[in-house]
Computed example of a mutant assay.
Amino acid sequence: MITLTSVTKVFGAATNPVRALDGVSLAVDAGEIFGVIGQSGAGKSTLIRTVNLLERPDSGSVSVADRELTALSDRDLLHARREIGMVFQQFNLLDSRTVRGNVELALEVVGVGRRERASRTNEILELVGLENKANQYPAQLSGGQKQRVGIARALASRPRVLLSDEATSALDPETTHSILQLLKSLNRDLGLTILLITHEMDVVKSICDSAALMSGGRILEQGRLVDLLAQPGSQLARGLFPLGELPDGNSTVIDVTFVGLSSARPVVARLARTHQLDVGLLGAAMETIGGAQSGRTRLELPGTIDAHTAAISDLRAQGLVVEIVRSGR
């Protein structure tokens, strides 16, 4: 549904250029929620603004819904953008317009008639749970309600793709949860493809099917969350299940990642019983990720790694991902 191929965007003077995007390639499948995560300055906002060509790349191509946007004329690009809605962090509502007026504005600018505008606005306000706020002004709304208006406005033209630019970062945790659940229900009920950027791993963990980790204008890794969890050395997987600092000591320490049904197995008990080991539990985390119950456990084994070859092979034979954090001595 969304494909970026070798996209580059440079800002600043030639003597001091800033490569906001450095050969970025990204693929988002139709109907999925895809999160792009990274720290401030990673290039996330530039990336999402490139998807609808609010920022035109210096090189590379951008395709949405089988149309290469970077190859379109200005007129054709305007039509293509109707299939791409965008939600902003700061809401960007007009204070002089009511909730209804803010949503209708998105339809006015593309020439939709008054009767159709009213009908569509009623439909979309009910969808986002604001049907009883239609005649109120932004100043009368909470932050979460303002963001719902922003989402309604983005959905007014019936887009196939919804872009979310840090849409929850200005909200409190409870409101963030409600907005994320709204996005998830829109994805499910409308078949929307959603691309969101965030600096919060909990957002990715809560609703995303796939994700990409971004730093310095580059994509470091990307893929479906369940696949990344099963990938040894994945930085995203470590971020999804942080296990804290490694304690001092001479023992062997391993991280065991469980994906799907394997999370229900008595792995630690079996390991201790089968291999007669005194297994220490240093940390554990469990979540439902991408629809599958998954988790990570940090185990301490006595002695050196050489003494535990059979135990580690046994774990891997069960389909678990085992990473050696410390070899012991």
Rank of each mutant, 00 (worst) to 15 (best):
G41F: 08
L105S: 00
A284H: 11
Q140K: 13
L163K: 05
F11V: 09
G41D: 08
R298K: 12
A264W: 10
M286E: 06
I84Y: 05
G35T: 02
Q293F: 06
K205N: 13
L130I: 10
G283H: 13
T70E: 00
V99M: 05
A269W: 09
G43S: 12
L299P: 03
G113F: 07
L261K: 13
V325Y: 04
E32V: 10
T257G: 08
S142D: 11
V149L: 06
G129H: 03
R100S: 10
T175M: 06
G41K: 09
T15Q: 13
K146D: 01
P159M: 13
V325G: 07
G38M: 03
V279Q: 04
A27R: 12
D278C: 11
G31Y: 04
N102V: 06
A154Q: 03
E174D: 09
N102T: 06
R218E: 13
L190V: 06
G129K: 07
S119W: 10
S73G: 15
V268R: 13
S327Y: 03
D306W: 07
Q147G: 00
D306L: 11
L228M: 15
E116V: 12
I48H: 00
D209T: 13
L127V: 09
L72D: 10
I312S: 05
L299C: 08
P173W: 11
L183K: 08
G239D: 11
S262M: 03
A272C: 11
E200T: 02
N122D: 15
G239Y: 04
R49S: 01
L299K: 10
L180C: 12
L301V: 13
L229G: 04
Q318Y: 02
P57M: 05
A167E: 02
S327N: 07
Q147C: 05
D189I: 05
L125C: 02
L320D: 01
T176F: 01
S294G: 10
F241A: 02
A13F: 09
R270Y: 07
N52M: 06
L4W: 02
V87K: 04
D278G: 14
N16I: 07
G23V: 00
A310G: 01
L196M: 14
R270T: 15
G31S: 09
S251A: 14
S119D: 15
L236R: 03
G295T: 09
D22T: 07
A264V: 10
A152H: 05
P242N: 12
I207R: 12
T309F: 13
L281Q: 12
F88Y: 13
R329A: 11
L78R: 15
S251I: 00
V87E: 04
D314H: 11
N132Y: 08
L195R: 01
S185Y: 08
Q145L: 02
E126D: 13
M201T: 08
L271G: 09
T288H: 01
E55K: 06
L213T: 04
I37K: 02
A71I: 03
V10P: 04
K9E: 06
L190S: 06
S6W: 00
Q39W: 12
V103R: 00
G239P: 03
Q145D: 03
I312T: 07
L47N: 05
H275Y: 14
L127K: 14
R296M: 08
L246A: 03
T252H: 02
M86S: 04
R265S: 14
G41S: 11
V325K: 00
L21F: 05
V87D: 02
